[in-house]
Amino acid sequence: MARVEPVVEALAIHKSFGDLEVLKGVNLTVAPQELVFIIGPSGSGKSTLLRCCNLLEEPSSGVVKITGEDITAAGVDINQVRQRIGMVFQSFNLYPHMSALGNVSLALRKVKKQPRAQAEAKAQEALERVGLAHKADAYPTELSGGQQQRVAIARAIAMEPDVMLFDEPTSALDPELVGSVLEVMRELRKSGMTMVVVSHEMRFARDAADRVLFMDAGMVVEEGPPDEVFGAPKHERTKAFLASVNGH
C-alpha cells in the first residue's frame, strides 16, 4: 500500500522554558481523517505539543511538517501555514468587540482577502455547521460558554483547514454545556476532518478517537487504539492516571 502523506508530522520535538524541559523528544503523526486524542496529567506537556504544531510555541528543536511541508524551516510564511491549521482554545478567545459573524469572517477577509459579502456568506455557512446561524449578530458576551466555543470552532473551520487542533475545548465549560460542543466535534469528525484533541473527556475519546496518546512528564508513554489504551493499558503510569480520572 502506498504510504499516505500524514497531515501532521511532528518529529523529535523538544521544548524548554528556561531550565524547564516541557517536551523531551515527542513524535506525533496524524493521518488524513484521523482523530488523535492526547490525554495525560496537567503539566505533562500535551498542550505545549499541540501549540508546537502551529508554532504558537516555537519548538526548541525538532521538525514539524504539515501535509509534508516543513514549517519549522527558515523562510516559511507561518501565516500562510496557519490558515491550514485551525485551533480551538480552552478559553475560546473570541474577539469581544465583534459579532459572531465578525469573529468568523475576519481572517477570511484579511488573510484570504475575500470581499466582505463572500466572507460573510462563508462565515454564515460555518455558523450553520455549528448550529448557530441564528446567533450571527450576537456578541460574545451575549452567548453562553458552549455557544462561544462553537463560534470559535466555526471561526476555525471557515478557513477550511487541513487539520483542527483542540486545546481542552470543554474544560472551561459548565457540565451541562459540554455536550453541545462535543456534538459539533462529532459532526466534524463524520465530515472527515483531521483532528488532534487534547482533553479530559474520556468517554468522548473512547467513542470517537482513532488513536489515543498518553503523555506524562514531556514524553509519550503509551499510544494505541482507545480500546487498548483504556481497556488494557500496558504502563503503570497510564494505569495510575486512568484510575485517578475514573475515580472522579
Binding site: N79, R82, N93, L106, A107, K110, V111, R155, M159
Partner: peptide, 26 residues
C-alpha cells in the same frame, strides 16, 4: 488577554493585522 493575539495568529493574521483588527480596537 494573551489569548486574543494567539487566536488571531492561529487563523493566519499577521502580528500587525492582529494588532489593527483585534488588539487595538479593544
Amino acid at each position: 488577554p494573551k489569548g486574543q493575539m494567539e487566536a488571531a495568529r492561529s487563523t493566519g493574521l499577521t502580528t500587525l493585522q492582529a494588532m489593527r483588527y483585534v488588539i487595538l480596537p479593544q
